[in-house]
Computed example of a mutant assay.
Amino acid sequence: MKIGILSDSHLKSDYTKEVIDFLKEINSEYLVHAGDLCIEKNLQLLEESKLKYVSVFGNNDRNLLQLSSKYNIKQEPYYFQIKDTKFKLMHLPYYLTPDSDVVIFGHTHMFEQDYKNKTLFVNPGEVCAREKPFIECVQLEIKENEYIISRYFKKINEKNFKKEEYIYER
């Protein structure tokens, strides 16, 4: 199972589209957005991807609250399950407790990954390239006995994404 993870799109719908298209190109089956979509266009892009997706409201998403019935955007922390894997999704890193198999968060604009006490923690970094000159996303591949985290990043003026990979035994 391959899950595309992104966060902190802010007003950069062109970067968001580029990341979603890339995650589809590398065969992601699901999309998870960890908040700060900021504009409806970014929600539309998730919807138009035709992949199953879920997102949460970030601290800059108050203007999107009335759209929760139109798009799959939830209050944080949001718990869900894909196959036999339990997830907790949030924007603000306030609920970093090991009460799921995978905890996904955003807000810091920094890529993070850690595996503690059989819980995987992932922050995909930022789509918007605000804190640093990189567009970032993650693909999480979940296999029976391992997690494979592939971090993809590129400078805004570059054509191709670079990749870093991290593997943990489940």
Results as ranks from 00 to 15, higher is better:
M1K: 13
K2I: 14
I3Y: 02
I3W: 05
G4W: 02
I5W: 07
S7M: 00
S7T: 09
S7H: 03
D8K: 07
H10Q: 10
L11A: 13
T16F: 09
T16R: 00
T16S: 01
K17P: 05
I20W: 02
D21A: 12
D21C: 03
D21S: 12
F22I: 10
L23G: 07
K24S: 10
Y30I: 03
L31A: 10
L31K: 13
L31Q: 08
V32K: 07
A34R: 08
G35E: 03
G35C: 05
D36T: 08
L37N: 01
L37K: 09
C38Y: 11
I39T: 13
I39Y: 04
K41L: 01
N42Q: 03
E47D: 03
E48Q: 15
K52F: 15
V54T: 15
S55L: 07
S55D: 03
F57G: 05
G58N: 08
G58E: 02
N59E: 00
D61M: 10
R62E: 02
N63I: 12
N63W: 05
Q66T: 10
Q66K: 15
Q66Y: 10
L67K: 15
S68C: 00
S69H: 10
K74H: 14
K74V: 05
E76C: 00
E76G: 05
P77Q: 09
P77W: 09
P77M: 03
Y79D: 06
F80P: 06
Q81R: 15
I82P: 12
I82N: 10
K86W: 01
L92V: 13
L92D: 11
P93Q: 07
P93L: 11
Y95G: 06
Y95M: 01
T97Y: 14
T97P: 02
T97A: 09
P98L: 08
D101A: 11
D101T: 13
V103F: 05
V103L: 08
H107C: 04
H107K: 10
T108R: 09
T108I: 08
M110L: 13
M110F: 12
F111K: 04
E112N: 07
E112R: 13
Y115E: 11
Y115K: 12
Y115P: 14
K116M: 11
K116S: 09
K118T: 12
F121V: 12
F121L: 14
F121I: 09
F121C: 12
V122H: 00
V122C: 06
G125P: 02
G125F: 00
E126H: 08
A129Y: 05
R130Y: 06
R130I: 07
K132T: 11
K132N: 11
E136A: 02
V138K: 02
V138F: 03
Q139I: 12
E141R: 07
E144Y: 13
E144C: 14
N145P: 12
Y147G: 06
I148C: 04
I148N: 00
I148L: 15
I149V: 15
I149C: 04
Y152H: 08
Y152Q: 07
Y152G: 11
K155A: 14
K155N: 13
N157D: 04
N157H: 05
N157R: 04
E158C: 06
E158S: 15
N160E: 14
F161W: 01
F161D: 01
F161L: 04
F161P: 06
K162V: 05
K162G: 01
K163P: 06
E164S: 07
I167Y: 05
I167V: 15
Y168T: 11
Y168W: 09
R170L: 14
